[in-house]
């Protein structure tokens, strides 16, 4: 009986992933490999990834990849999909990349209803640069640029990009988490539906995934997962926000 199998898209499993212990990106990377394999779309897939730790999701991941300018993956993906509509074009972006510097690009890709799929990995912090405050950082959260805790008065409340996009007539929008096996399974389902929306030519699809960053949250991996369940999810509720149920 097979109890554990490495997806065939994750090559060189013995090499370093670059991912910190307890980071959620390893789980998300595996889910992405599984859904691309299960939908048998990896041969046509072109991934566009942002600046930051999302690059680790693409490491030793056997599809074609383009490393985009910071925040601009949806703009580059737009052109790739327009010129090659038969390809499956995805972006993998963190919350700093997508909500801050790339805010405009993702919104307008959604407005144009580009037939691309955005995977939005939200850990509420700038991980790669050492834990600075992001637009998704929760109130009172201590980061290197909010040393007294994030002040809603000065920095505003956390940005709800997924909700903002969900008011547009796009194909599929959902938010998932990965803090326990049940949520991991649900999130995988969202990712699959988002890609199916692209396969069926329905339009723009986006899945936000709440992910822990124990290193920059200064927590154990278990505490970081608990924090998502107890503190992050109440502000960022989980579930599907836009579905077209296969209609195009």
């Amino acid at each position: 009986m097979v109890v554990c199998k490495t997806p065939r898209l994750l090559i060189e499993p013995s090499l370093a992933t670059g991912i910190c212990p307890g980071c959620g990106y390893g789980i998300i990377k595996r889910l992405l490999a599984e859904v691309l394999e299960e939908l048998v779309i990896d041969e046509e897939a072109i991934g566009v990834y942002g600046i930051g730790c999302t690059g680790y999701v693409t490491r030793h991941f056997d599809i074609d990849w383009l490393w985009a300018q910071h925040g601009r993956a949806p703009a580059s993906a737009t052109a790739i999909k327009r010129l090659q509509p038969e390809k499956i074009v995805i972006t993998v972006q963190g919350d700093g990349d997508l909500c801050a510097i790339g805010c405009s690009e993702v919104i307008h890709a959604a407005v144009r209803n580009e037939k691309i799929t955005v995977f939005f990995l939200n850990n509420g912090i700038y991980g790669m640069t050492g834990g600075q405050m992001a637009p998704t950082t929760l109130p009172d959260q201590i980061t290197t640029t909010s040393p007294q805790g994030k002040s809603p008065e000065l920095a505003g409340m956390p940005m709800k990009m997924t909700e903002m996009i969900s008011v547009l007539p796009v194909a599929y929008v959902a938010r998932g988490a990965i803090y326990n096996p049940a949520e991991i399974r649900k999130t995988k389902g969202y990712m699959k539906q988002a890609l199916e929306a692209q396969v069926n030519n329905e339009g723009f699809s986006l899945v936000e995934i709440l992910s822990p960053c124990p290193t920059n949250w200064h927590m154990t991996p278990v505490k970081a997962m608990e924090r998502i369940k107890n503190k992050v999810v109440p502000y960022y509720p989980l579930g599907e926000m836009v579905t077209k149920g296969g209609e195009s």
């Binding site: 898209l9 041969e43 693409t58 074609d64 383009l66 490393w67 390809k87």
Partner: peptide, 12 residues
């Protein structure tokens, strides 16, 4: 970049 097809994935 055309998608890897039957070959290996390529990173630009």
């Amino acid at each position: 970049l055309k998608g890897k097809g039957k070959g290996k994935g390529r990173r630009l």
